[in-house]
Design a protein around this nucleic acid. Structure first.
Length: 276
DNA sequence: AGGATAGCCTGCGGGC
DNA sequence: TGCCCGCAGGCTATCC
């Protein structure tokens, strides 16, 4: 569920708790959620114990906590991952907490029931860029759309699959793919190579608009998503198609259609969204 | 090599 | 009440 807007809100909410703060302790409670560069067992130092946080970066749906030592902790939330701020004093038993960091003022926990997410440690930011982030396309919000909009027209698969492909453009998940397609009037089953340059450009604009709007609304909370301070998002109230299977289109009142596309539940309006 | 598919994992809601 | 099943889905590995 956490897509670009949710991850960006986690990033922003973490900054006051982490940037400029020293991590006095880093504890890994479940070793298999964390991977190091050389596949060795992660040490507390790998997890930034003793370091001061310099910045928190994001690319697509992934975060990178950069320490003043140059070390980097890459966090991917997957489906159910959360980074949450807790009081400094010992927290009551909480399920599915896999890592805990301590600062002078707070504890920060990584919690992930479904464990589709994880942690990756790197000795430098460059090491992250040439390994895990090498397969990510440009960030859907931060990058110039000219760098990726033309790529939406490549391939023989449907445009929904292309939007979800993180190597084309990074940050779009199932929710915002459907929302952007509806806003652009593009049918999700349109073959990517059949998309006209003008429609690809319009779709790129829709992607950016819906993501920017969602960031400002604090992301979408369907069930679990919260920012690091535990605050829910409000963008789910603005969804035009996602989660509205069987209901009527808010733009034209035609019954919305639902099908599985690219192995994802896909909702669209058969009247507003066309293949050409 | 691009693209489709299976599998990972847990919680929840519906049906019986 | 309780059990079972289906569903949610980001990403990697594997296959075609």
């Amino acid at each position: 569920m956490p897509e670009l807007p949710e991850v960006e809100n986690v990033r922003r909410s973490l900054i006051p708790h982490l940037v400029g703060h020293t991590l006095t302790e880093a504890r890994l409670l479940r070793a298999d959620v964390c991977t190091t560069e050389n596949a060795a067992t992660p040490t507390p130092a790998d997890l930034l114990q003793g370091a001061t946080v310099r910045s928190i970066e994001r690319r697509g749906k992934q975060l990178a906590v950069v320490a003043d030592t140059g070390r980097v902790l890459n966090i991917h939330l997957g489906m159910s991952g959360q980074v949450l701020v807790r009081p400094a004093n010992p927290t009551p038993e909480e399920k599915h907490v896999h890592a805990v960091w301590t600062t002078a003022a707070r504890s920060i926990i990584f919690k992930d029931p479904r464990r589709f997410g994880g942690l990756w440690t790197f000795s430098t930011f460059e090491a992250l860029l040439i390994s895990r982030w090498r397969m990510l396309g440009p960030d859907a919000l931060d990058a110039d759309p000219l760098t990726w909009v033309a790529s939406l027209r490549r391939g023989r698969r449907c445009i929904k699959a292309t939007l979800l492909d993180q190597s084309v453009v990074a940050g779009i998940g199932n929710i915002y793919a459907d929302e952007a397609l509806h806003r652009a009037g593009v049918h999700p089953a349109t073959l990517s190579h059949r998309l006209s340059p003008a429609r690809a450009s319009a779709l790129g604009d829709s992607v950016r608009r819906v993501l920017a709007e969602a960031v400002e609304a604090g992301g979408s909370t369907l069930r679990d998503y919260r920012n690091a301070d535990g605050v829910s998002g409000r963008q789910q109230e603005k969804h035009l198609v996602y989660g509205r299977s069987g209901e009527r289109c808010l733009a034209c009142s035609a019954p919305l259609r639902t099908a599985t596309l690219a192995q994802r539940t896909t909702v669209w309006c058969p009247r507003c969204q066309t293949k050409r």
